[in-house]
């Protein structure tokens, strides 16, 4: 009954004295922990990046002198940012809001349609060819039309962002929902699991790696959607896109660059956030 040969049936076998694990002493353990935590402080980790950063900054300085209509010295950009941080913060929040609301709407709609598409073959055959074509179409190009149709408020930005995010999510999730291996489906069909049960317990969890793959694509896309829509609605509203549009028309290059740097930082932050969430949710997943 028990795995240990010779152990009398019904009793718990005594814990084995020898194992294949070598447990370090507390001092060793502390040293190892410290080593792991301070890994990023070692020059081998940060030096290459910092070196390239310095090179780029020097290159930027040269560029600013050679092409003053394109580049401005980094000091000026920093000056603009520190002069009125509230202005940039407020516009950042507007753009972020548009991007996230659009992304949220796009995500919910795309996920719902992905479920329908994966369950109903007729709908799949109708929808998926369009989805593939539209996901490779630069949908941001309809931004001017949306501004004409929906005005200068938040609506065209949210709609454009939702549209831009919709198709990559749809394609990824529709694929993910069908990624349950055949033998698994067979095991659960022999116990007559209903379609809803298969969806809930097998398909949706199996699609999560695909959901995160699509989020990695779509978080940056949402920023693009929001900024392009702001650019198209020139000078009318808040947001970093509008800041860029207005400042460049007035030849305030430092402000343009400051807004771009803020966008880069914001995009990185979102990407980092997705990665973090992915590590949390998909701890079981090994790509």
């Amino acid at each position: 009954m028990s795995l240990q040969p010779g152990a009398p049936a019904g009793t718990q076998p005594a814990p084995p004295r020898r194992t294949h694990l070598l447990v370090p002493t507390p001092e060793q353990l502390a040293a190892r922990r410290l080593r792991r935590r301070t890994r990023l402080l070692r020059p081998a980790y940060w030096l290459p990046f910092v070196l390239l950063l310095v090179v780029l900054a020097i290159g930027w300085g040269i560029g600013a002198r050679q092409m003053p209509y394109l580049f401005v010295p980094l000091g000026e950009i920093a000056g603009v940012l520190s002069e009125d941080p509230a202005y940039f913060l407020q516009n950042t929040l507007v753009t972020l809001g548009e991007a996230l609301v659009g992304l949220g709407i796009g995500f919910v709609a795309a996920f719902a349609l992905a479920v329908v598409v994966s369950e109903v073959a007729v709908v799949r055959r109708a929808v998926m060819p369009f989805a593939v074509v539209l996901s490779v179409t630069p949908l941001v190009a309809i931004a001017p039309l949306l501004v004409v149709a929906l005005g200068f408020g938040m609506a065209p930005k949210v709609v454009l962002t939702a549209l831009v995010c919709f198709f990559p999510i749809l394609i990824n999730v529709a694929t993910g929902l069908r990624a349950v291996p055949g033998p698994v489906l067979e095991v659960y069909r022999t116990v007559a699991a209903s379609r809803l049960e298969v969806l809930r317990y097998l398909r949706v969890p199996a699609s999560l790696p695909y959901v995160f793959a699509s989020l990695r694509i779509v978080f940056p896309l949402s920023m693009i959607g929001a900024v392009v829509a702001e650019l198209a609605a020139a000078g009318s509203a808040d947001g970093l896109g509008s800041v860029i549009q207005v400042a460049s028309s007035q030849n305030r290059l430092a402000t343009v660059w400051a807004a771009i740097f803020v966008l880069a930082a914001l995009g990185s932050l979102l990407f980092w956030f997705v990665t973090l969430a992915e590590r949390r949710v998909l701890h079981w997943h090994q790509p």
Binding site: P183, E186, V187, Y188, A193, Y201, W284
Partner: peptide
């Protein structure tokens, strides 16, 4: 089946329990 066909996001216990939750 020939392959174990376990769900990678469920523990061993979760995997043997899930068939009881369906049907």
């Amino acid at each position: 089946p020939q392959s174990p066909a376990l769900l990678p996001w469920l523990s061993v216990l979760g995997n043997v329990t899930l068939p009881h939750k369906v049907n």
